[in-house]
Simulated scan of single mutants.
Amino acid sequence: MSNNLLKGKRGIIFGALNEMSIAWKVAERAVEEGAVITLTNTPVAVRMGQVSELGEKLNAEIIPADATNVEDLEMVFAKSMEILGGKIDFVLHSIGMSPNVRKKRPYDDLDYDLLNKTLDISAISFHKMIQVAKKMDAIAENGSILALSYVAAQRTLFGYNDMADAKALLESIARSFGYIYGREKGVRINTISQSPTMTTAGSGVKGMESLMDFANRMSPLGNASAEECADYCIVMFSDLTRKVTMQNLYHDGGFSSMGMSLRAMTQYNKSFDEYRNENGDICYG
């Protein structure tokens, strides 16, 4: 259902790849709420993904670009303003990838060249994107910039690897640039810390299905879906959140505030049942 929350607004969505992508869902909801948008991803992702289908569906032009390349980013903002007919009101950064995770390098045996790529793709690209936009004066006053994060920026979760470092940097960039851009142009910059979500990138994290099950048992409201995350993003793009900036906003069903839930404890106790001896004592194999 549309409430016209973004009527008349212009946006750029970075990172839509396929129907599993949160960025894909955000793009659909943004247009549904009255916005006009452009879509951008790497040339390889545009060729190999399904973003062309999304572009046709939403009547949105696709701009192939490498978000780690400043010249490409300048092109994205220049073309988007030309196509959409003015300055940009909202931007979504939904970009993340770890070559170390893909190559199954554990955190205590990282390839540092690959770590640099993780940080550049997943976090520094956010800084480059904002810096380019600011220098080009491409964002309208009181505009909104969002990036997608994860609770591993604050807490250690097995298997999340160097992506945790990237998310911590991402959130720091939002705070540091949020102050500057907010002070000068009223532009607000936030991150959304989403529940574990089975996107193409998320599926590469070791033990992702177990992590999702654990988070769901721990969260009083359960895991937030990609569609629900898209709804939250729309609210953050809208004028309803004009004074929210420099925040990391948890959208995780309450997981980030939990220590132990009844559902998680019940499952934990079930695992012990398999290891009790004839006297009922727990055996720690």
Rank of each mutant, 00 (worst) to 15 (best):
K206M: 14
A45C: 10
I63W: 11
D213Q: 10
K103R: 08
Y275K: 13
S195R: 11
M208E: 12
T245H: 00
V91A: 10
G11C: 06
M1C: 03
V36R: 11
Y284W: 13
G11S: 06
A45D: 14
N116V: 03
E28H: 04
V70W: 05
Y112K: 08
D108K: 01
F14C: 04
L17M: 03
V26Q: 04
A226T: 05
T42H: 06
N190K: 08
I13K: 14
C283E: 14
C283Q: 14
R242G: 13
T38V: 10
L170R: 02
E61D: 04
S172W: 13
M97Y: 14
M198N: 15
F255G: 01
I180D: 12
L119H: 01
D137I: 01
D66I: 03
E33V: 03
G55P: 09
F158Y: 09
N277L: 14
Q154E: 07
V244R: 13
A140E: 09
V46H: 05
L58I: 10
A226E: 03
I63D: 09
Y232D: 06
A147P: 08
N161C: 01
D252P: 00
L211E: 07
N161W: 05
V235E: 06
G207R: 00
R102N: 15
D111K: 02
L110F: 07
T42V: 03
H127A: 09
I145G: 05
E56C: 01
L58F: 10
M218H: 10
E32A: 07
A35R: 03
N190V: 07
K79S: 13
M75T: 02
V76T: 08
N100W: 11
T245K: 07
D113H: 10
H93M: 01
A123D: 10
S195W: 03
I63F: 07
N277Q: 15
I139Q: 00
V91W: 01
A168C: 09
S149W: 08
K206P: 07
M136S: 15
G182L: 07
A166G: 01
R105T: 00
I121C: 12
G85C: 09
A174K: 13
H127D: 05
T40D: 10
Y181Q: 14
I12R: 03
A264C: 15
